[in-house]
């Protein structure tokens, strides 16, 4: 059976590529998700090519217009073209998602490795991390955005803060169990310097779960940005993001639901794709899952 599936589904090839045992099945859903995500990323990155208008050009006389040849998805309360804003808005939303995930993973990895390896630092670091985890993420982000003012960088910073502890916990738990492995103990007894051990032996162990974690952080950051915008604490009004297009449009929900519908649809599809890909990656990387699949 394994041979058949490898020959007929593209998943077999990918599985081999990722070094997974033969027979790991990837359904059709993740492929749809990947295609959808790629499509969204491409039209977003190349927004200038597809946008019929300047996304921030005001036109008070064209407020809240319905769909037309000139404005395919209509206009918002400032008379700006909704299609162009949704396309450009993806740039900011994806940037926030990717940057938050990247910063949270890098910072969390560093802190987690230290906590996992140095007993002394561990207690202090973990108490601080527990404290950050205890504060509800939206409240923490609201307070942080209020400090730094509404901008893309402060939103990224604010969301990153509540995501770091989760990464630290993950990395630390992996390090703690890996530290007991014979090859690490051997390296320590051979007098290898700590940074080298961390880098050479422990980093690889943590990489796969971190990638999975990163997809979830990316998805949740895009959503939290929308919530912050809804509360009036997003990135501001001029530069579009999916979140603030919806936040600006929410007053007009009964009047012109399309202002929320289109950015909401694209945002939800994007988050959905990222989550599905994350789930798929986790299932493939989890050895116990693999055992059962086989």
């Amino acid at each position: 059976m394994a041979d058949v599936s490898r020959a007929t589904t593209p998943g077999g090839g990918i599985a081999r590529l990722l070094g997974l045992p033969p027979g790991t099945r990837i359904g059709v859903v993740p492929w749809i998700a990947l295609a959808m995500l790629l499509f969204i990323v491409l039209v977003t990155v190349f927004a200038p090519l597809f946008s019929p208008h300047d996304p921030i050009a005001l036109s008070p006389l064209n407020r809240l217009k319905p769909s037309s040849a000139e404005f395919p998805l209509g206009t918002d309360a400032y008379g700006r073209d909704v299609l162009s804003r949704v396309l450009y808005g993806g740039q900011v939303s994806l940037l926030i998602g990717v940057a938050t995930a990247a910063i949270a993973v890098v910072a969390g990895l560093a802190i987690g490795l230290v906590a996992g390896f140095f007993r002394l630092a561990d207690a202090l670091i973990m108490r601080v991390m527990d404290a950050f985890m205890a504060i509800p993420p939206v409240l923490l982000a609201v307070a942080l955005v209020a400090i730094h003012g509404a901008s893309v960088s402060s939103v990224i910073l604010a969301i990153t803060f509540s995501e770091i502890p989760r990464v630290v916990r993950l990395v630390r738990s992996i390090v703690l169990s890996a530290r007991e492995e014979p090859y690490v103990e051997a390296a320590i007894s051979l007098g290898t310097r700590m940074p080298v051990i961390l880098w050479r032996h422990l980093m690889p162990n943590t990489l796969a779960p971190l990638i999975v974690q990163a997809t979830y952080i990316c998805a949740s950051a895009i959503l939290i940005e929308a919530i912050l915008s809804f509360l009036g604490l997003g990135i501001g009004t001029e530069t579009p993001s999916w979140g603030n297009i919806m936040a600006d449009g929410r007053t007009y929900f009964m009047l012109k639901p399309s202002l929320i519908f289109w950015p909401g649809l694209v945002l939800s599809l994007c988050v959905l794709s990222i989550n599905i890909l994350g789930d798929t990656a986790r299932d493939m990387l989890d050895p116990r899952m693999r055992k059962r699949e086989a």
Binding site: L58, G232, L233, G234, T237
Partner: peptide, 30 residues
């Protein structure tokens, strides 16, 4: 950004001033 329609005027001013050649930095806040 949290006062409804009143928050729209600065956006319009920013656009007007930019068109006249001002170097505008529109900063959003609560």
């Amino acid at each position: 950004t949290d006062i409804g329609a009143m928050g729209t005027i600065p956006v319009v001013i920013a656009s007007d001033l930019r068109e006249a050649g001002f170097n505008v930095d529109l900063q959003s806040m609560d």
